[in-house]
Design a protein around this nucleic acid. Structure first.
Lengths: 249, 249
DNA sequence: AAGGCGCATTGACCTGGATCAATTATCAGT
DNA sequence: ACTGATAATTGATCCAGGTCAATGCGCCTT
């Protein structure tokens, strides 16, 4: 329950020590989730040199904006981010939420410009990977290229799943799926799969799932009434994740 | 109007000559849309050797099925394909349509298994790129890796756009956007942006856009009544693409 | 040319979730 | 501790687009 009331930024503790210091990749607590995985240690040392480490962002601060030139890919170090695409009429779609070890900005490689906006959801930090350097290194480190492609492919695969969710699932299924996806990601990062903080607003969740805020709010209440979850503000606890799993469709 | 009544497979003529012969990449009419773009000619010759060329598929025939091991990426040579993701309850989402020069199967790299199904929409052919070989070559041809990443990134970027469409657009906006996207792709391939054949069924279109078949059918009729398009079966002609552009939102 | 089958169209009706509106929490800043 | 702003909840109503049902149209097969 202590964790439920913990209002410090998500994952802060995970990278607490490293946050202020320029710790090397191989000492980083995110190592096994991150890009360098599988590199030889001399290659890793090389990579280490080009990474701009632990840049900090506060809640709402943009990591990059739409239509700015592409320079770097970012890896979340601590905290969390959201990405959105906008239409000229102001409508926008939250295309993803990003947690430590996840990559942001890969969809900009082709156009050589960011086609989305990334914003911090809380106090967060990233490692910046200058893409040009990454390419240079790739020439001598095929393993790095494989890793990069693998990452791109993973996001692609996730996007297809999201397309299914947006196109075919009901509101209930959407929200259940979303909660379990978060749960799994928290678990992968060594946190409780049962209790965590939602760093994004109800509005962000609704937008991401193609729903209205009111619908999300009502569903949270209903899920709680039905004993599936326990939610209080940003603190959520998955009481019956089996039932939740069934609701995913 | 002749083209409207042309019932031969889409793009057949584009790759007609090459279709039966094992023509080299640099002689291929799709060259400027395809992977080898930007490779040095000796690298290209190498690549040429590993490509399994012009395999043919008939309407409805699967290129690969969900959960089969990942071996190759495919490039459409002629005709067209659709990809779908399925849920256990039978629901499925058409995640994309693919035309000559476009890549299929890139979302399988990470999982090392296809997580979607690809089916030919008409008589079609592909070039198969064995991924393992592609990786080997990548070690000595950084340019190839860049191309691959660029491709992956392009699809990623397209998927985000599709997410916006699925999550935020009205039925009318969805269909208008879809038609113009097709139009642009036909144009890129040297065909008329105004008149073309829809190789996919109304059902496929509806599914892809997160709509019911009936809605798509009604919209086609309405667009025609309003003088925006001319449609007769699979043959469509964009009469007022400016107005159509306005409808995209 | 007749029958059959899948696809497409059209009409009538219904509903899940959006929208509108009114409170009520929550929280950041002083 | 107070306060204004922003986010979240809850209720009432509405409508875009889904569902159901009937019919029409190619197109293939014999």
């Amino acid at each position: 329950m202590a964790q439920l009331n913990n209002v410090t930024p998500l994952f802060k503790d995970l990278a607490k020590v490293e946050h202020e210091h320029n710790i090397a990749c191989k000492e980083c607590s995110l190592y096994r989730l991150c890009l360098p995985l599988g590199l030889h240690s001399n290659d890793l040392a090389q990579l280490d040199k080009i990474i701009k480490r632990s840049q900090s962002y506060t809640r709402g601060q943009p990591l990059f904006a739409t239509d700015t030139p592409f320079k770097s890919i970012f890896v979340v170090r601590s905290g969390s981010f959201k990405t959105t695409v906008q239409a000229s009429d102001g409508r926008e779609q939250v295309t993803g939420f990003y947690f430590p070890g996840e990559f942001i900005g890969m969809d900009a490689i082709y156009e050589q410009a960011y086609k989305s906006t990334a914003k911090a959801l809380e106090s967060s930090s990233v490692c910046e990977l200058p893409f040009e350097k990454l390419q240079e290194f790739g020439a001598t480190m095929p393993q790095l290229q494989v890793q990069m492609m693998s990452r791109l492919s993973k996001e692609l695969s996730g996007d297809k799943t999201l397309m299914f969710l947006l196109g075919k699932k009901t509101a209930e299924e959407k929200l259940a799926t979303f909660l379990l996806s978060l749960s799994r990601r928290f678990q992968d990062r060594g946190f409780s799969a049962r209790e965590f903080q939602l760093s994004m607003s109800r509005g962000d969740i609704a937008n991401h799932l193609g729903l209205a805020v009111e619908t999300v709010s009502r569903l949270f209440t209903r899920f709680q009434d039905e004993g599936l979850i326990n939610i209080q503000g940003k603190a959520i606890s998955l009481v019956d994740s089996d039932k939740l799993k069934q609701l995913c469709g």
